[in-house]
């Protein structure tokens, strides 16, 4: 059966225009991201999309479906599984890959996981280094990927504001912020020597608000953990810690049922929940407007030391 018969009703692009006859900012961002996805798929030998299951990955994946339609997505998805991901996330990941029809690769740093690497015994910096950064570099090398898409945005963190859309990495996967290629217009320089690679950030110009609005407008499925409901949590001061995997409770500590949700999805030991009654995307957007703290504030790992994201990126993190 032929794909993409014109069975869908023909639409006028005026549907894309606002009342002043202009494209909305979401359409502009979408068009820019699709352009980037198509450039990379056409210029590199072996691209891959890092799929982290979170809301940004969900948007990136939808953009990839749009970019190559009616053809399938011409690269695999790669999930770096630390072994500390929420069970709901893994289920969502597998369902999504099946529905989208994309090839899903999962990579775990098995030796480190088997050795019992965890953020409580090690510090979070070394834990991330082994289970995320090292695993990522190993996976890229194993599959010989020369370009990897990531869902990072420039508004997330100060060092990410300086990131290029095509971020050049040397043969050890390292980022050199003082020696980045200038990036003009929409002309991206993807030339690399053997062993070097490019990290590509198609969502660079999106903000957290843009991502949620797009999910709302496009009805993109996201993990249920983003929505508020009563969940058993360990309450430590302002922090709400979920019960997942081998959570180590303090002596005498008991979980309580708390109306809460996750604002960003990371590893269960390092991702705190927030008290919230936002149980729908409009409610999340409403909450976002009233929020006065950035989304990574609930990630323990970014606060270990001043500039810790920058250090991780230099070492090869996304």
């Amino acid at each position: 059966m032929p794909v993409a018969e014109a069975e869908t009703p023909v639409r006028s692009s005026s549907e894309f225009l606002n009342s002043q006859g202009r494209l909305s900012h979401l359409r502009l961002l979408e068009a820019e991201s699709i352009h980037i996805l198509r450039e990379v798929a056409s210029e590199f030998e072996r691209p891959v999309m890092l799929y982290s299951i979170g809301k940004d990955s969900s948007v990136m994946l939808r953009l990839a479906q749009k970019a190559f339609y009616p053809a399938p997505i011409p690269f695999p998805l790669l999930h770096i599984d630390t072994g500390f991901k929420f069970a709901e996330m893994l289920q969502f990941r597998d369902n999504t890959a099946r529905e989208v029809g994309a090839e899903l690769l999962v990579w775990r740093n098995e030796p480190a996981i088997a050795a019992g690497t965890n953020p409580i015994v090690l510090d979070t910096k070394r834990c991330c280094g082994l289970l995320k950064t090292q695993a990522l570099l190993d996976a890229l090398r194993h599959y010989n990927f020369d370009a990897a898409f990531g869902g990072a945005r420039r508004d997330e963190e100060k060092s990410r504001a300086k990131e290029r859309i095509y971020s050049f990495r040397d043969s050890a996967g390292q980022w050199d912020p003082k020696n980045q290629r200038p990036e003009l217009w929409n002309l991206y320089n993807g030339r690399i020597h053997p062993g070097e690679s490019i990290r590509v950030f198609p969502l660079s110009s999106w903000t957290e608000m843009d991502v949620w609005q797009y999910i709302h407008e496009e009805k993109i499925p996201v993990v249920d953990l983003y929505f508020a409901k009563a969940r058993p949590m360990y309450v430590r001061g302002e922090a709400l810690l979920p019960i997942e995997q081998d959570f180590v409770a303090w002596p005498g500590e008991k979980p309580q049922m708390v109306e809460c949700r996750l604002r960003s999805l990371g590893c269960s030991p390092c991702t705190g929940a927030i008290r919230s009654d936002a149980d729908s995307i409009p409610a999340i957007i409403a909450e976002l407007i009233s929020f006065r703290s950035s989304e990574r504030a609930n990630r323990v790992i970014d606060h270990d030391q001043e500039g810790s994201m920058e250090i991780k990126k230099r070492e090869g993190y996304f």
Binding site: S12, F16, Y69
Partner: peptide, 20 residues
């Protein structure tokens, strides 16, 4: 002949949309 997008065919498209 056609202007194809994931959201359905268009009868007209304007810069800077990404289409097929």
């Amino acid at each position: 002949e056609r202007i194809v997008t994931w959201d359905g065919d268009l009868e007209e498209a304007v810069a800077p949309l990404s289409v097929t």
